[in-house]
Design a protein around this nucleic acid. Structure first.
Length: 423
RNA sequence: GGUGAGGUGGGUGAGUGGCCGAAACCAACAGUUUGCUAAACUGUCGUACGUGUCAAAGCGUACCGCGGGUUCGAAUCCCGCCCUCACCGCCA
């Protein structure tokens, strides 16, 4: 949610940003500004009356103490009149506040100036690429055949136990998951991130804080009985750790990492996009989150990008980094880099990480603030990224490293996996 | 799930109708003293919105778990909800 002072101080900037993001209702901005003016006017009236009531009440108390009952009664009658007016005013004020909030919440975050124009994924900008494409034999197999051949993942069994999109990992397949999670977490911890194990279900306020609610309700699994939501990413519980918190400037940046399973309903997809590990309802992911000083958040973003890039390099996968165009970015993001790895058997790029700066968009919802040098309270900037999402990494590792003898395990994983080959 | 107790500022904790946005202590911060540290002493020390201003100070309103009610006036009384603790039951 954009802070209201932006609208008052810099309407043009807001309009420009919304236009770049192809937001369809720029007229909301004027509506918000208009409501804001009426709201403030009403608050002045409301506060004035409340002050009169308070003053009169104080007087009544003093008169009663002195035994001047008649005078007190007169004042009481006066207060009764004030109160009628006050009730009306505070009701209207509450209505306007709700109305304003309901409008502001519909506006997406504003894209950073470096975000390319554009509307579709084709207009994303390749920032850089690395790694090498393996030269596979003609008999190369896609990962869904490799997982069957080596008995690593049973998709059918998952169907029986839960439903499609809930695979069962087994044997070396299960161990590979655990190895990747441990490796990713340790890599993040070594870079100064503090490890967390958050709940996998969250309440409304938490899902609201990171922007999943109210508008993306259908994308999360909902436990209606207890009003909980299964997390679509660790970002949700982890960022909310600092909800309603005022940090010291010296505490920044706050660096957190967590492994969690992620649950996504993702209705409506089909075909090769969802084959095998390409898209699942439950998957594993290690996330990094930072709360940063507003003046440093873009430096922080670059360090996070470099961090994820180095991790991909260590796995020996061919990758490319995209700067998403304004139209393809998420509702909450100001700047997003997507990481894709090349799946050599499927011969296509798969997204494995998304690193974003949300600036103060989430922080404003969650009220994550810090006290700056002059003692003023400011919103922090929030950032997060995957490091990494497992399924597509697994898909690429299996496909790209397949040999007639078995599947080679990258060196960095061998200590965790306990072997250099899946046979 | 049952019964009982309770939810107050960063922490402990006082406050059962007006003098309370809230005592006291601790922590924190600034200063004095000091060879350094400590101790002692002095001061500062909640948040949001509004108003004011170049900026501020100041002023107003609201907030003592959340929501409603009683009253001229509510942290304090009443109702509902949430949460915590203790004991019992169940249990990985």
């Amino acid at each position: 949610m954009l802070p209201i002072h932006l609208f008052r101080q810099n309407k043009e900037l807001v309009l420009e940003g919304l236009k770049k993001k192809h937001f369809k209702q720029p007229e909301l901005v004027d509506a918000i500004i208009d409501i804001d003016e009426r709201r403030r006017q009403l608050q002045v009236e409301n506060d004035t009356i409340a002050a009169s009531v308070n003053a009169a009440s104080k007087n009544i108390g003093q008169l009663m103490a002195k035994g001047e009952k008649e005078e007190a009664e007169k004042l009481k009658a006066e207060v009764a009149q004030y109160k009628e007016k006050a009730k009306e005013l505070s009701q209207k004020l509450a209505e306007l506040e709700t109305e304003q909030h309901d409008l502001v919440i519909q506006l997406p975050n504003l894209p950073h100036s470096s975000v390319p124009e554009g509307k579709t994924p084709e207009e994303n900008e390749v920032v850089r690429a690395g790694g090498t494409r393996p030269d596979l034999s003609a008999q190369k197999l896609p990962h869904w055949e490799l997982t069957e051949k080596y008995k690593l993942i049973d998709f059918e069994l998952g169907n029986k136990i839960t439903g499609s999109g809930f695979p069962v990992y087994m044997g070396q397949g299960a161990k590979l998951q655990r190895a990747l999670i441990s490796y990713f977490l340790n890599y993040n911890i070594d870079a100064g991130y503090k490890e967390y194990m958050p709940p996998h279900m969250v309440n409304y306020d938490t899902a609201y804080g990171t922007g999943q609610l109210p508008d993306k309700e259908g994308q999360m699994y909902h436990v209606t009985e207890d009003k909980f939501y299964l997390i679509p990413t660790a970002e949700v519980p982890v960022t909310n750790i600092y909800r309603d918190t005022i940090l010291a400037e010296a505490d920044l940046p706050v660096k957190m990492t967590a492994y969690t399973p992620c649950f996504r309903r993702e209705a409506g997809s089909y075909g090769k996009d969802v084959r095998g590990l390409n898209r699942l309802h439950q998957f594993d992911k290690v996330e990094v989150v930072q709360l940063a000083h507003p003046e440093k958040s873009y430096e922080v973003l670059e360090t996070m990008v470099a961090h994820v890039e180095k991790l991909l390099q260590s796995l020996g996968l061919e990758y490319r980094i995209l700067r998403l165009c304004a139209g393809d970015m998420s509702f909450t993001s100001a700047l997003t880099y997507d990481f894709e790895v090349y799946s050599a058997a499927q011969e296509r790029w798969l997204e494995v990480s998304s690193v974003s700066n949300f600036e103060m968009f989430q922080a404003n919802r969650m009220k994550i603030r810090f006290k700056d040098g002059s003692g003023k309270t400011q919103l922090v900037h929030t950032l997060n990224g995957s490091s990494l999402a497992l399924p597509r990494i697994v898909a690429c590792l299996l496909e790209n490293n397949q040999t007639p003898e078995g599947i080679k395990i990258p060196q960095v994983l061998q200590p965790y996996f306990g072997s250099d080959m899946i046979k």
